[in-house]
Design a protein around this nucleic acid. Structure first.
Lengths: 154, 154
DNA sequence: CCCGAAATATAGCCTTGGCTTTATTCTGGT
DNA sequence: ACCAGAATAAAGCCAAGGCTATATTTCGGG
């Protein structure tokens, strides 16, 4: 009833599944990426709000993200803990040096993902929406591949 | 200090940000996708294990996903609650009709995402790894675009 | 046939990221 | 100059998804 006892077919051929540790690594990587996704969304949004409004208020962040203000505040506190942002009570949120660097990287990645999706035929609005979830899982290697692909056909 | 008081530039042009409700929707969609991602990973893996081993044991699921067995068991219980799987104590896990349908959809989507990544120049192993996180955020519209793109270019 | 090892299950804990409710602080308009 | 209403913060709840530690059940080899 186990693989071992049911015949030779699946012994080391393993025609379907990657090796166990490899697969576990992939899932683990995806989990880690997910953990940082929220931070990335926040820093990107804070940078955008500063660029446009000259300030980033918790209530605006909350509205843009579609969450309650307390939720936004809690996440902002996490940003502070992680050294990505600073905020004094009733004074708005500011990115640290590190936060700004991250924001710029996230923004560039987002644009590249959107452009790639459009290049393969995804409508602009759908590309924007899907990119919001996809971007956090695109590795640097893939990102560079996207860049090359766009250059050789744009 | 507010957008209202700082000049005309950003009033309704809003050159950078999408409208607030639109953006909130996007983030909300990404959050929902994330919530179902784990279920999708489990049903896909359970289907694979059945196809290869003839059974899906919690311990194998746990090892493949790189989590502890109790964690896997808890998630399996959630699958049961959601009507995607059944399991009797000490007897392995089985997908329901609905679970099998989902598994097939997830598997097809995974393959398509990997193929697209490879088509734009991402190395096979990186494509596999990135797809693990990306796939859960690719909408049907994008998926169809991927299909068309792959068809028209061999 | 039975007993120890492996698999499974249960219980309890932690963090994250949602939420609502309540209290506090700012601030603009009269 | 004040005060109502908006923005902010604080506190406490919940579910999800990790974990470890502790039973319990199965099952294969001697």
């Amino acid at each position: 009833m186990k693989a071992d006892t049911m015949g030779a077919v699946t012994r080391q051929a393993d025609p379907e599944l990657p090796s166990e540790p490899t697969q576990a690594e992939r899932f683990g990587k995806a989990r880690v990426a997910q953990a940082t996704a929220l931070l990335e969304d926040y820093v990107e949004l804070i940078a955008d709000l500063h660029a446009i409004n000259g300030e980033a208020r918790p209530i605006d962040i909350a509205r843009r993200l579609g969450v309650s203000h307390p939720t936004a505040v809690k996440s902002i506190n996490r940003l502070k803990r992680e050294g990505l942002a600073t905020a004094k009570p009733y004074r708005g949120v500011f990115l640290t040096e590190e936060g700004q660097v991250l924001a710029e990287r996230v923004r560039a990645r987002h644009r590249l993902v959107v452009r790639l999706l459009e290049a393969v035929g995804v409508p602009a609005d759908v590309a924007e929406a899907d990119a919001e979830g996809i971007e956090h899982h695109v590795s640097d290697v893939s990102l560079r591949a996207f860049g090359r692909f766009l250059k050789t056909r744009g």
